[in-house]
Design a protein around this nucleic acid. Sequence first.
DNA 1: GACGCGACTTAACATCGTTAAGTATTATAA
DNA 2: TTATAATACTTAACGATGTTAAGTCGCGTC
Lengths: 215, 215
Amino acid sequence: MVITERRERERQEIRAKILDAARELFAQDGYEAVTMREIAKRIEYSPTAIYFHFADKAALIRELCNCDFLALAQRFRDLMTVRDPIERIRRAGAAYIEFAERNPNHYRLMFMTPMPADAPTPAESTLRQGNPEEDAYAFLRGSVVEALAAGRFRPGLDDPDLLSQVFWAGVHGIAALQVVRAEEDPWVKWRPLAQRTRLLIDALIDGLTTEKKVP
Amino acid sequence: MVITERRERERQEIRAKILDAARELFAQDGYEAVTMREIAKRIEYSPTAIYFHFADKAALIRELCNCDFLALAQRFRDLMTVRDPIERIRRAGAAYIEFAERNPNHYRLMFMTPMPADAPTPAESTLRQGNPEEDAYAFLRGSVVEALAAGRFRPGLDDPDLLSQVFWAGVHGIAALQVVRAEEDPWVKWRPLAQRTRLLIDALIDGLTTEKKVP
DNA sequence: GACGCGACTTAACATCGTTAAGTATTATAA
DNA sequence: TTATAATACTTAACGATGTTAAGTCGCGTC
């Protein structure tokens, strides 16, 4: 039965080729602009061939998205070495925004697009929910729990989910506005991204914890 | 020449009918889902008729968008009566998020979609930039300047644009995540919007100003 | 050596935004 | 009063999109 193994291997190869082509086009031009026909042309197959490997365009893009979630979580994994949980949260916020700046189209799909009804639930997904190495939210929440245990947050603030979600919202706001209004915006004179990032993270941490960065 | 006046009036009427139909469909289903043919069916005209009143679909939607910007700015206008600038900023943040919650599709178009290349510049737009009654950013910035003059922000924080942008980013983060992940999200157990809103605004204000809400 | 299945192609469908061409109605000019 | 021109539309069609139906070809199995 070695033959079916080879078949399976070939299947995975062409699957990967499709994904690579799609990723490249998509990172360049964004979701809507990517065409099944164009992906097909790139890999020198007919457009229909893609449908033997992916149910539809959404499924294709969803698979790319999964990779991106993993990539983000793995950037966070490197921050495990930071011992102080508050400092770790700070760095995670900065890394998050940097990810968005570097992969604006991926970020848009991951966090700025409504989830389709048939999106995979944690049970279906290959990503294991709650595992900080694969789930970025779990990483953030874990650090919050740690800081909470160390009594670093202000009294009265004791809900790790609420705290995580507020911090996430803050950095997401910076990232999302950057992605959408990155180029020349005649309506608002944007301050440099680094300045906005720094001040928001500092202010949020200052407002939530007992420590003071600014006197 | 009263006749051309009537013609112009009729023109405006059908224009308004198109806009109304488009607004309703759009608020229900979002931008991509709205079809020129469906708008046409609703007003009982042929699809082509729309093109005699609007250059294309984007122009149509852009006009709706303009109305929404104005509507938001006018919600802010009511906050002019709040004397304390910091309290006014607080309330503006809450009103902003409430607007997003109530008009998720409009919000998506206004703040979560890349600006098309042919979007109107402030010079072209009917909205007057810098006028706090028509420009929500100007309203926020004005309040920040006022608070700055009153010495309410922490020492070292003296750039009204940077401060405005950071505050905007914070509330935008809450609003944007709400719009995209409002329904059941199996990945994150979301805390109630009101709680997230309150904590983020309080924390940001605490972190940026000299006053303390929480001890 | 007939059969069947898997991987693919060609052709087509429905739907989308948009445009070309034609047609009434109506105001202006002769 | 009638010819002309402009206005406000309609019908038909174009090209592009995601997707599906039907057919082809090659390989492994009985």
